[in-house]
Amino acid sequence: MLTKSQARLFFIGGTAFFSLIFVMLTVDTLRQIPERQNTKAMTASVVRGKTIWDDRNCMGCHTILGEGAYYAPELTLVVNRRGPEWIRIFLRDPQAMYPGKRKMIQYDFSEEQITDVIAFLDWIGKIDTNGFPPEPDLKPQVALAKASVAAVSDRPAYFDSVCTACHAVAGQGGTFGPALDGVATRIDPVALDTWLADPQKVKPGTAMPNLELSDELRAELVAWLSTLE
């Protein structure tokens, strides 16, 4: 069983060991930082910009490199995102840009001070941050989902309520039956009409049920399906 002096040894030894590793990693980090932060690009303007950043406590609302408060936008890549001209106009009168929205303090910066702040933010944006902030990874999928909904929005209401239980179009719908994208290129309208009138007669044993569609509805579905090329 562990004795008290062994426990103390574990505490002191562990602390000493991991402190030593921490100091060694720090030495190596300090060696690498000049290149990773691009020290050569740290002009006098950049340094003045940091002073303004600190004096105004910008971190009290914004985050930079992900650090600060969560009341105002992340600014690591702001120069890249907005461009220097936009930032200059914004800083001249922050409340004019988004009237009635969340307010930034009007600091009455001089043009030189604005130049320094932009220089600082520009330098920040070029630090090697190991990929922060990341590109929004769901953005393409959201865009795709929106597009496909628009493309098939004119389909018959019956298709949406019944057919989609088993069939998908543009990635939306069930998977029990085959997807119907491009069905018009595989089956001509007459064959589609015959099939829908009585699937079992065309292909005995098929899982597709006889939906006993009216002639009118069948015509509507065939007309629409024939547009899926």
């Binding site: 602390t15 991991f18 402190s19 590793i21 921490f22 990693l25 190596d28 980090t29 690498q32 930082i33 990773r36 932060q37 490199l65 992900g66 650090e67 630090i127 090697d128 941050t129 190991n130 990929g131 922060f132």
Partner: peptide, 14 residues
């Protein structure tokens, strides 16, 4: 001690 590293992910450290 080494857990401090979670603050060093994205600030320009290795």
């Amino acid at each position: 001690i080494l857990g401090t590293g979670h603050h060093y992910y994205y600030i320009g450290a290795p």
